Computed example of a mutant assay.
Amino acid sequence: MKIRKFAAIDIGSNAVRLLIANVIEEENRDPKFKKSSLVRVPIRLGQDVFTNGEISKNNVERMINAMKSYRLLMDIHGVEGYMACATSAMREAKNGATVVEKIMKKAGISIDIIDGKREAAIIASTDLHNVIEKECDYLYVDVGGGSTEFTIFSNGKIKISRSFKIGTVRLLNEMVTETDWKDIEKWVKRNTKDLKRLSLIGSGGNINKLYKMSGTTIGEPLSYIYLNAQYQFLQSLTYEERISELGLNPDRADVIIPATRIYLSACKWSGARKIYVPKIGLSDGIIKTLYFETSKKEKSTSNILSF
């Protein structure tokens, strides 16, 4: 048995995460991925970018400090490799490339600003074997602050995937039009109309929180009826009450409502009445992508040296 450590940095529109994972290698077995540590800091880059077009000086400094901390944590854990991916907010920021350069210079962290297609592909690479059944169809919805990735699984394989510019921070700032909603609705309906026994798979911090709040047994799905009732309940509370009564973090108490709206809309458009929540997302996909890319390079080098 060999245990390897890899790290993923997910620079989203609502928060920045560091995931450190163990990869357990055993002869004649598929590698096992196990989360070791997760650190999340609420740097809401989307608030800057979607309203002012660029990341503010204050948040640039916060980003640099966060990356310095992540570098130290990765060193302490002894990770052998990392991949840092920035999504919607960073790719739309006028100063995105400049911020990436500053972080590399001051924190020694190399960041890739990935497009929506790449983001959707990485998310879709996550391990869903405990959820997906070959005879069923699924709409996988990953809700972020700036974008939402939709992936359709049929017969155990990815049928189609697409990223849309709709996210919790955009919705809070009223930057999503009725036309945007209609475009997503048409795409979902068109690509799910011939699918039967379709269920939703939800990922992202908000659906994870909703799942935890529900008290549902791990592995069991949420129902559309429950999610809709919870949506109405959350809307009946003030922002302050969601923090004091429900114990939500300040940066979760506002975005959880628009996130729930997106999941409910996806259910309505696709006809799904069950929502599975495997608690995986972009960070998990980055770990898998990094591990397999590293393994491929190692095999290639080994083959060259053997000649």
Rank of each mutant, 00 (worst) to 15 (best):
I158T: 14
T98A: 10
T51A: 01
I160M: 04
I256E: 00
L210I: 08
I113K: 09
A21Y: 06
I43M: 10
Y276W: 13
Q232V: 08
L282V: 01
V188E: 05
V176Q: 04
S110Y: 04
T238V: 05
R170N: 04
A84W: 03
T177E: 00
T151H: 02
R17H: 12
K279R: 13
E240V: 13
K268P: 10
Y276R: 13
Q230H: 11
E241S: 15
D10Q: 06
I109W: 06
A8C: 02
R17A: 06
R242D: 13
L222P: 06
R91G: 11
L18C: 02
L246W: 07
T217G: 07
Q230T: 15
E174G: 13
A8E: 04
I122N: 12
K193F: 05
Q47S: 13
S244F: 07
N208M: 10
D194V: 01
I3G: 13
M104D: 12
C136D: 15
I166M: 09
K5S: 10
L171F: 01
K196S: 12
I111L: 00
D254I: 08
E54W: 02
I286W: 05
V79L: 04
N14F: 14
R4N: 13
N65H: 11
G205N: 08
E240T: 07
V49W: 01
K32C: 03
E133D: 01
G12P: 03
E27A: 10
K299W: 15
L198A: 11
K296G: 06
N208Q: 04
T301L: 14
E220V: 00
L198M: 03
P31E: 07
G247H: 13
W181T: 08
G116V: 05
G271V: 15
V39L: 13
E27H: 11
R118I: 01
K134D: 14
A89H: 00
K196R: 11
F150Y: 09
N28T: 09
I3N: 10
V23F: 02
V255P: 14
M1K: 15
D180L: 08
S244M: 00
K189G: 04
F233C: 07
L72R: 15
R71N: 10
